[in-house]
């Protein structure tokens, strides 16, 4: 009995140290979203580009949609941008890529897109950031995958890299486009 009592502090230390060790490999800036598996919020955004449609909730019905919040002042958005160009060129039949410009002047977003290329099928302009708050956005870039029923399936905070695109997003897009049996 005495022996076990002497071991107790060591055991407590090991448990606490175990949690701390796990914490070393977690990203504290990533906040779990309560919106996963929930229907996408209800909104209707005006178009950023007068030549392209705006974006509202009903536009997500019937097909897989990747919603990307971006801004011209956002440096990480520039990093992930080529992957979206690639996605639009190669997988436009599987996924509808939609942009929402966040906290940006429309002319700045437009000139950013005209310089780097515009991969989006639709672009909504979120002047007041109210729609972004409804999506739980707390920084750009943020990207959401929505299934054909309009349910949010996945959220990515920060720039998407090739690994995430190839190993998480593309397989999920394929999975979600399968007809529900």
């Amino acid at each position: 009995m005495r022996r076990i009592l002497y071991l107790l502090p060591v055991l407590i230390f090991l448990v606490v140290a175990g949690f701390f060790f796990k914490g070393l490999f977690m990203d504290p800036s990533e906040v779990p979203s309560p919106l996963i598996s929930q229907p996408a919020p209800d909104f209707d955004l005006p178009p950023l580009n007068p030549e392209k449609p705006g974006f509202r909730t009903a536009d997500m019905q019937g097909r897989v949609t990747l919603v990307n919040f971006f801004a011209s002042w956002c440096i990480p958005c520039r990093v992930e941008h080529p992957l979206f160009m690639e996605l639009a060129a190669q997988h436009a039949d599987e996924v509808q890529l939609v942009g929402i410009s966040y906290k940006d002047k429309p002319e700045d977003s437009l000139s950013w897109l005209s310089r780097l290329g515009d991969p989006y099928a639709r672009i909504g302009h979120d002047e007041t950031t109210r729609v972004a708050i409804d999506w739980g956005v707390y920084g750009v870039p943020e990207t959401y995958l929505v299934d054909p029923q309009g349910i949010i399936r996945y959220k990515h905070v920060g720039p998407i890299d090739r690994h995430t695109m190839d190993n998480t997003i593309l397989p999920m897009i394929r999975d979600l486009s399968k007809p529900v049996s």
Binding site: P32, S33, P34
Partner: peptide, 8 residues
């Protein structure tokens, strides 16, 4: 606010 950003 919690419905959008979680209990965090």
């Amino acid at each position: 606010v919690v419905a959008r950003y979680g209990e965090y």
